[in-house]
Design a binder for these strands. Structure first.
Lengths: 141, 141
DNA sequence: GGCAATTCATTTGTATACGAATGATATCAA
DNA sequence: TTGATATCATTCGTATACAAATGAATTGCC
């Protein structure tokens, strides 16, 4: 399935290219509905709400971001007063990240929109197809 | 399918998150096999080989990159001597981008690897599943 | 012909991403 | 216990991405 009927090379049939385009469309839908936060920022807040206070690196691994990337995301959320940083008494290397009241309010207000974003992104598919796609995508992720 | 059995919110089931993770894995596979070029650079060269000389913006739209992004990609390829820039006599706004001999040699050598990359990325799936995934992904892209 | 709208490319600013190097701290094992 | 190893966070460098603003050139339309 990586080679077309003529045996030639077709960018459009490479998984990487299609993933990139699907991501682009999803991002457009996301920012139309949640202009205030980027998907990584949203993921960080949503995960913090789920697990409570954690170290920065731990949070990164929960949302699949390396240390350098998560730092930038947390820095920007901190600058907006949505998260706060504490020290870990037991391990002086660690930074404990937690939601502020504002952060909690915001993410609780936005979480319901996430379902709508996923719904709109998957709108070209039937429910059955959408669930197949999510399942298969999960297996290669 | 965006809500789990307990009715709660689960990041792992949001299409955006899964797309991002699938992309990460694909990128890792890509750079292990083609360390020399990024996927966008590869896409630009592959498309140039397919369509021949085109304007920068035209190339961008063929590979789904906006004008600002494509400029950076082309600049770096130009700096490495893989593409060259010419002027369009008929339209002085346009930059015509084309492969150099080195660029053509490189992309011809690398294109066969693309199939292997797609294959490895889709390895967790059966052939039938892989082709379903590509089809469905194409519909939401 | 001439002006409005459009297109092409560039620039600036912001936000992921990730590799690699570094310093501080913990842990583990001999 | 101490020395090697590992972990946590930071920093630097490079490479996408995209929005918005800009200037130059072209096109469309009356």
């Amino acid at each position: 399935m990586t080679v077309g009927p003529d045996g030639g090379y077709h960018l459009q049939e490479q998984i990487g290219f299609v993933l990139r385009k699907a991501n682009q469309r999803h991002l457009a839908i996301f920012s139309a509905r949640i202009g205030d936060l980027t998907p990584p920022q949203f993921a960080a807040l949503a995960k913090l709400k789920e697990v409570g206070e954690t170290s920065q690196n731990q949070l990164g691994s929960l949302i699949a971001m390396d240390a350098a990337t998560v730092k930038g995301v947390i820095d920007r959320l901190k600058a907006r007063g949505l998260v706060e940083i504490g020290k870990d008494g037991a391990d002086k290397r660690r930074l404990l990240v937690s939601l502020t009241v504002e952060g909690r309010d915001l993410i609780e207000r936005l979480v319901p929109l996430a379902a709508a974003i996923t719904y709109e992104t998957l709108a070209p598919l039937t429910q059955r197809e959408a669930s197949t796609l999510l399942r298969l995508l999960g297996r290669i992720a």
